[in-house]
Design a protein around this nucleic acid. Structure first.
Lengths: 107, 107
DNA sequence: TTTGTATATTGCAATATTACGATAAATAAA
DNA sequence: TTTATTTATCGTAATATTGCAATATACAAA
């Protein structure tokens, strides 16, 4: 085996796991943090911000895009990336449900 | 290569990524959700709740324990698992910082 | 057209994760 | 002590992730 038995779990559980997975690498956390420090959706220079080669950064950006956590739009020669507020809200909601349930517990 | 260049990122970025990673599998999301549905820290039967073999569940539980998201105490023959409120609060705080920053942005 | 700049894709090696059968360890009950 | 029950660990196969050099693509500027 080796492949995750995702079909054995609910859609919501898989969706939540996918979002967590997209953020499960320090480089991708760093990308999100960087996108949050800049005022607008700034183009380029994400590569210069990270201690990784350009193809590696491109790959991490692709994963964040696939998870719909960020989105990129072509802006001349470069690409303008920004956070997908929609998805982050969804994520926040999921997460809230969990932490809310936790507060209702004793333990 | 293949190993993650974690030393190139901040401790906080790595810590956050570790927490996300611990929850990046549907089985582990399911475990957390199950622990939240039961009133107290119920022993055993986590294995029966999941569509996975016992060694696999044990492995997932170990990962959640390593990330300090859950904790287990011996209770006779079985082990009583429950959520580590401390860690989840820390996680919640990290996450809040991100979503708060997002709200301060236009985009 | 040629050159330069920005980003993506390919290919591959190193490493990590996932899953589970077999087995071990620990303890309760008979 | 023997047996049953519960959880952990080992070993291993299948698959996924990470990182980057090389290369491709796309387009702006010269």
């Amino acid at each position: 085996m080796g492949a995750s038995k995702s079909e054995s779990f609910s859609d919501e559980q898989n969706e939540l796991a996918t979002l967590f997975k997209a953020l499960s690498h320090p480089a991708r956390v760093a990308i999100i943090e960087y996108l949050l420090t800049v005022d607008t959706c700034i183009c380029g220079d994400i590569v210069n911000e990270l201690p990784l080669a350009q193809p590696t950064v491109s790959q991490h950006l692709k994963e964040l895009k696939n998870a719909k956590i960020i989105q990129g739009s072509i802006e001349g020669t470069s690409i303008c990336y920004c956070i997908n507020t929609e998805t982050l809200k969804k994520f926040e909601n999921y997460f809230f449900t969990i932490t809310k349930k936790l507060k209702e517990k004793c333990c």
